[in-house]
Design a binder for these strands. Structure first.
Lengths: 138, 138
DNA sequence: GTTCCTGCAAAAGCTTTGCAGAAGA
DNA sequence: TCTTCTGCAAAGCTTTTGCAGGAAC
């Protein structure tokens, strides 16, 4: 995971973006927590070691990282946005019983979809809901 | 379209839900506007003929219809939710150039997805972003 | 008469904006 | 020095809640 962080840091610096202490910590958090944290969750965790950290900085950084396609902003539901470090394209499945969110690989191509012939897809979100296998067994 | 409305009204009444004037108008709006309206859009349109209509009623009704799987709440982005009358399962594609939202048919089955073996999918949202064919040509 | 529905007002929650001070190049 | 970043405070928006009056059964 350390390796991934370093790679991403290099990638970001190449783009001429300054990586302040705050930004680095937020990025690190996202890489180490692939369970779709919210801005609030990131804030609550980082405030412990950075007592002056503000939510504004969290939002600024998340927007910045999203603009540069380092992370993805996903709307699971409600008003609260979740953020995902992009390590591969994947969909999300939320179990309505245990509330857990599962990831799964997706490989969708625009070409087989008749209505999207010739379209260019740059971002894809796939979100399912239902009951996971463990909860079905109970 | 009139036929669809009547069918849905029957379906709802069968479930023992009262269909007040307000609820009927909101439902009618959703059936006649399949372009993913927001609560605000529905409100702005209906307030003209129902000056006392409140946003609370809109939200109450939308929640009610969603609970009974008549409509689907979708999070395209931002804080504002969009609502979709369920006439068939379909995904959404938003063009980042012209901002238009396109619909396309989807037929996803849990079984080919390794990570979701044995899961039960009751709701699915597929949302793509990119550039549509018209904007690519320009 | 009892239950459900409507809608005003207020509150709640997430996100954005303005701005001044601090940090970095 | 000049640009960029941080973070407080306030505002902006969407959505939810409490509650009283009204409608439906």
């Amino acid at each position: 995971m350390k390796k991934t962080l370093n790679l991403v840091v290099q990638e970001i610096k190449k783009k001429g973006i300054q990586l302040s202490h705050q930004r680095l910590k937020i990025l690190e958090y996202l890489i180490n927590h692939l369970n779709h944290p919210t801005a609030q969750e990131i804030y609550c965790s980082l405030i412990k070691e950075m007592p002056t950290l503000s939510k504004t900085t969290i939002y600024n950084t998340l927007d910045l990282l999203e603009e540069h396609q380092i992370i993805k902003k996903i709307s699971i539901e409600n008003q609260e946005a979740h953020y995902d470090f992009i390590y591969q394209d994947h969909g999300h499945f939320k179990c309505n019983v245990c509330q857990k969110i599962f990831d799964f690989k997706i490989s969708v191509d625009a070409q087989p979809i008749q209505e999207l012939q010739g379209f260019s897809i740059t971002k894809q979100s796939v979100y399912f809901q239902g009951t996971c296998i463990s909860c079905l067994k109970v």
